[in-house]
């Protein structure tokens, strides 16, 4: 029985080669074999979105993929968003500025989904944002600040520089 396979893949621009049990899920491989613990394990059956990564440029739920399926693939995880020197990317800064996270457990999944959304639709409507983000669940925030984070990131990626909603609300009170 072929129970292990060799897997070669690129993650966040770096190449890795590992031997892996064929039944190991991709999220477990990323966390345990590659030490990339930014991708989180929530439900382990594809409903919560905490495990969301980019697989050859498209968001995918890594808890319901096998590591062996990533052989030859190009992945991006949340660790790939910030610069190597640690400067946050625009989406991460926007989540910070709009208080789009509390415990942070769901956040890597939301960041990766937002990354694909804004690279596909630079000026999304609120309904498009809600539809795109519908596969990511958050138990803390009530989603309002997450939606505003995405809107702020979209504006900034378009070269605009609006005042964050949270700042406007603070100033008005």
């Amino acid at each position: 029985m072929a129970t292990t396979r060799s897997v070669t893949l690129r993650v966040n621009g770096l190449e890795y080669e590992h031997s892996v049990e064929v039944r190991k899920t991709l999220v477990d491989f990323l966390r345990e074999d590659l030490g990339l613990v930014g991708t989180h394990v929530g439900c382990e059956h594809g409903v919560c979105g905490a495990c969301t990564i980019l697989f050859n440029g498209e968001t995918a739920r890594s808890c319901i993929m096998l590591a062996v399926q990533a052989d030859g693939a190009e992945l991006m995880t949340v660790e790939g968003l910030a610069s190597p020197e640690g400067k946050l990317d625009v989406i991460q800064e926007s989540f910070r500025d709009e208080h789009g996270l509390q415990c942070g457990f769901c956040t890597p999944g939301f960041l990766m989904t937002t990354y694909e959304l804004l690279h596909t639709i630079p000026d999304p409507t609120i309904d498009e944002i809600k539809d795109w983000l519908s596969g990511n669940i958050c138990r803390c925030t009530g989603y309002k600040d997450i939606l505003e984070s995405v809107q702020l990131a979209a504006a900034r990626l378009r070269g605009e520089d609006p005042l964050p909603t949270s700042q406007r609300e603070h100033d008005a009170s």
Partner: peptide, 9 residues
């Protein structure tokens, strides 16, 4: 059908 991530795979 589900969500965008589901439709991607």
């Amino acid at each position: 059908i589900g969500h965008p991530q589901i439709r991607s795979r």
